[in-house]
């Protein structure tokens, strides 16, 4: 039996001065797979405009559109109902070649001396399965990193975060990816929602024995039936929730509110 959750993801941008020619692309639409079934899904954008929907080469759904006239606020909400099956793994039928983008270091997960040293100390033992190894890494990263907000930002790489020993879910996920990829285990960055978080969350999926397992080093556990996945990619860059450009001289304030609860 799956667990049925109601979710709401709100994001608002407030501009100090009116902006115009605002173009945006939003990767915030959860999709159905064998781990979660999206039963209702609605997206509202304010100011109202025509939205187009597409799927990118990683398989993520995204919507895009434009608000041409001057406006001082931009608001978007995605809400719906999902049924989620706890620790179920996703089948991973891709051949090693199709998984290649997830096997090699990407921009945020390039290993420097710190990551390399860390990998040496926590190496995959002979005969240790990919799943067991990744599970061990999840514990290890959780122990060695301190969850501190405001120390790192969206440009921080895995190497930088591990060197500093502090960070947020994005950093935990990048470090985990860097290490998995050094061990030649295909792994990908996941953005989603989690009960009780209040904000968007990031974790990883690792491919072991033909299945994708969702692991969350920030909380030292497997992603269970309180997690709803939105998108995946090589790292943060492929999953940016909101991309946009506009014309205007302004400062902007972003607010994100994510709510997940039982129906």
């Amino acid at each position: 039996m799956g667990r049925t959750l109601r979710f709401g993801y709100q994001m608002s941008l407030v501009f100090s001065q009116p902006i115009q020619k605002h173009q945006f692309a939003l990767r915030m639409l959860p999709q159905s797979d064998t781990r979660q079934q999206i039963k209702e899904r609605e997206i509202c954008v304010e100011p109202a405009c025509t939205l187009q929907e597409d799927v990118d080469s990683f398989g993520n759904a995204y919507v895009y559109g434009a608000v041409e006239h001057p406006h001082t606020a931009f608001w978007v909400e995605v809400c719906g109902v999902a049924t989620v099956w706890g620790n179920a793994a996703l089948p991973c039928q891709d051949t090693p070649l199709l998984l290649a983008p997830y096997r090699f270091a990407s921009q945020y997960t390039k290993a420097g001396d710190t990551i390399k040293g860390y990998y040496e100390r926590n190496q995959r033992a002979a005969g240790e399965g990919a799943y067991v190894f990744c599970e061990r890494l999840t514990h290890q990263i959780y122990q060695d990193m301190a969850y501190v907000q405001g120390v790192t930002d969206i440009h921080t790489t895995a190497e930088e975060a591990l060197s500093g020993g502090q960070g947020v879910c994005q950093d935990y996920a990048h470090i985990m990816l860097a290490l998995c990829r050094m061990a030649d285990i295909p792994s990908r960055y996941v953005v989603g929602m989690m009960m009780g978080e209040g904000y968007s969350h990031a974790w990883v999926e690792v491919c072991a024995d033909g299945k994708w397992y969702a692991m969350d080093p920030t909380n030292d556990k497997m992603a269970d039936d309180t997690y709803i996945k939105i998108s995946h990619g090589r790292d943060y860059q492929d999953c940016i929730v909101n991309r946009g450009t506009f014309c205007g001289t302004t400062t902007q304030t972003q607010n994100v509110r994510v709510v997940v609860h039982d129906v």
Binding site: D56, R243, T245
Partner: peptide, 17 residues
């Protein structure tokens, strides 16, 4: 900027689409 470098101001949003 919608698909590649998000800081680009010389590109065209959505041209890749």
């Amino acid at each position: 900027p919608m698909h590649f470098n998000p800081d680009s101001v010389i590109g065209i949003p959505h041209i890749f689409d």
